[in-house]
C-alpha cells in the first residue's frame, strides 16, 4: 500500500494512511489533497530539510513534519545542532602571523609588467600634456614612416651606405680591440687574436655579458622600486 513498505507508518500522523504522492512519483489514484507522506522521514530526508533544500519533493516532507510530532522533534534537534555549528567562530592567529608569512613569500614582478610600467612612467599625467605628447609622437611616427618608404624606394643606395658604415665600424672596432689586446697580452696575444673569427667571438661574448648585466640590474632595480 505504501511506496516504502519497510518503513513503519507514522503513529502521530493525523491523516489516516492511504495512497498519496510519493518522493519517487505521484500515484494516479491519489486524491489531490493527499500530499503528506505517512511514514517517518529517512536520515537523508532529514538532511535535506536541515540543509534548507527547496524544490521538487520537499513539499511532502514539510507536510509530514507538520503532522508528525516525532519527526518534528527530531528535525528541531538536528536544526539546533546545525545552528550551533554555524555559529562557531573563527580563531585568530598571533599578530605576527602575516609578517612571518610575508617574510617567506617571494614577490616577483614579471619582466613584461616591469617593461610596461617602465614605459608608462614616461607617459604624462595631465591631459594637455598627453595630447601634446601624442601629437609629437604622431609627427615623429609619420616622419619615420615617410623616411622608411623613401629609403625602401632606394634600396641600392641604402645597401651601399649600410655596407660602407659596417666596414667603417668593423675597422674602428678591430683597431680598438687590437689596441686593447696588445696592451693587455702583448704582441703574442695580438697575433692569436688577429684571427677575425676569434676577435668577433670575443667581442660578441663581451657585448652579451655587458648587455645581460645591465638588463638584469635594470629589472632588479625596477622590481625593488615596485615593492617599496
Amino acid at each position: 500500500m505504501f511506496p516504502t513498505p519497510r518503513l513503519p507508518a507514522c503513529p502521530n500522523a493525523r491523516i489516516p494512511a492511504k495512497r498519496h504522492e510519493t518522493l519517487t512519483g505521484t500515484c494516479p489514484y491519489d486524491p489531490p489533497e493527499a500530499i503528506v507522506d505517512h511514514r517517518h522521514l529517512t536520515p537523508q530526508e532529514f538532511d535535506l530539510l536541515v540543509d534548507g533544500e527547496e524544490g521538487f519533493g520537499m513539499a511532502p516532507l514539510a507536510g509530514h513534519i507538520e503532522e508528525c510530532v516525532t519527526c518534528r522533534t527530531e528535525l528541531e534537534a538536528q536544526q539546533r545542532l546545525v545552528g550551533a555549528l554555524d555559529k562557531m567562530p573563527h580563531f585568530t592567529p598571533s599578530p605576527l602571523f602575516a609578517y612571518r608569512v610575508m617574510r617567506q613569500v617571494q614577490v616577483f614582478e614579471p619582466w613584461h609588467v616591469t617593461a610596461v610600467n617602465s614605459i608608462q612612467r614616461f607617459v604624462p599625467r595631465s591631459r594637455p600634456a598627453r595630447v601634446l605628447a601624442a601629437g609629437v609622437a604622431g609627427i615623429v611616427a609619420t616622419t619615420l614612416t615617410l623616411g622608411t618608404i623613401w629609403l625602401a624606394s632606394r634600396l641600392d643606395a641604402v645597401a651601399f651606405l649600410v655596407t660602407l658604415a659596417a666596414e667603417r665600424m668593423r675597422a674602428l672596432g678591430s683597431q680598438a680591440v687590437s689596441g686593447f689586446v696588445s696592451s693587455a697580452l702583448g704582441q703574442n696575444g695580438l697575433a692569436v687574436s688577429s684571427d677575425t673569427r676569434i676577435a668577433l667571438a670575443a667581442t660578441g661574448f663581451l657585448a652579451a655579458v655587458a648587455i645581460s648585466a645591465f638588463g638584469l640590474r635594470a629589472i632588479a632595480a625596477a622590481s625593488r622600486r615596485r615593492r617599496m
Binding site: F91, F97, A98, M102, V105, V107, V113
Partner: peptide, 18 residues
C-alpha cells in the same frame, strides 16, 4: 608583483585557514 595584494590575501584568509 604587487606585495600589498599578497598581504591582502593573507589578511582575508588567515583566520579561516588557521
Amino acid at each position: 608583483g604587487r606585495e600589498d595584494a599578497f598581504r591582502e590575501l593573507v589578511r582575508r584568509y588567515e583566520r579561516p585557514i588557521f
